[in-house]
Design a protein around this nucleic acid. Structure first.
Lengths: 138, 138
DNA sequence: GTCCGTGCAAAGGATTTGCATAATC
DNA sequence: GATTATGCAAATCCTTTGCACGGAC
């Protein structure tokens, strides 16, 4: 994903947008909050305001470049949207996020929604737990 | 669930707590935000502050009388906890919430978490869609 | 009567918005 | 050069907290 993606979705190629896109791509675990992005920007010496970070992330979401998630922590986290749906496994200790995809679960969800007369627009499954690493260190 | 439940969990029986418990029980769809509860209180002429609503709901959550959910709308919703785990089907139009429980999905979740080395502490699955009623009225 | 609970207003964190300046095309 | 984006500060939304008063036990 590079600058041409910005043009493709009708967004001007500006420094903040390019930088933020890069940060999201290079993040260790690919799920960052607006604060996280802002902090990385500050560390790299870029003078970009937090308001801009929010604005850019929201634009990216509308352009379907990134997805916004609401884990149970009060704030939003963003990840690059590669077009492949998946759910999340979140470690409540170290906040690491892993992704998974389970066809059996997807199918059951579809079935349940249909049975209840719903047309699915979206769905999200979050499993919260303690990861292997954190279990050892306790 | 009546006043004795309050005593049981170590909370004094006060008017706000009793009223709020009643409101949660009698709610049409059993999922209310703090604002929703507050509005009902106002309508019944009770002079109870919004801060108290939040305090009481938080105490109820700690006492495991109610469960707090974060659907993708920015605010929390609360429901009476009858001790039976279930997931949610949320209509994005009329905001109605239905509950469901699917053993197959529960089992798969357990399996996925184990495979990834996680000990599950909690999990939640929300399916967002348009309910039968809202599909007709559009 | 003691201690806990409540109301009000003020504080708090996350996110959004208004406006003048600065950058892109 | 026109239009769109940015930075800063102020505003907003949801929720929590501090403090003096009132109610439960």
């Amino acid at each position: 994903m590079d600058n041409s993606d910005l043009k493709k979705v009708g967004l001007k190629v500006t420094l903040p947008r390019v930088k933020i896109l890069q940060i999201l791509e290079n993040a260790h675990d690919h799920h960052l909050s607006a604060e996280d992005v802002y902090r990385v920007l500050l560390e790299s010496g870029d003078d970009i305001g937090l308001a801009t970070v929010y604005r850019v992330l929201t634009q990216f979401e509308e352009a379907k470049l990134v997805t916004r998630h609401h884990f149970s922590e009060g704030h939003s986290v963003f990840e690059i949207d590669h077009g492949t749906h998946h759910d999340h496994l979140v470690c409540v200790e170290c906040k690491t996020v892993e992704e998974f995809f389970d066809p059996a679960i997807e199918e059951r969800q579809q079935f349940i929604a249909e049975k209840a007369g719903y047309t699915i627009t979206d769905h999200n499954l979050n499993i919260y737990g303690i990861c292997a690493k954190c279990q050892k260190s306790t």
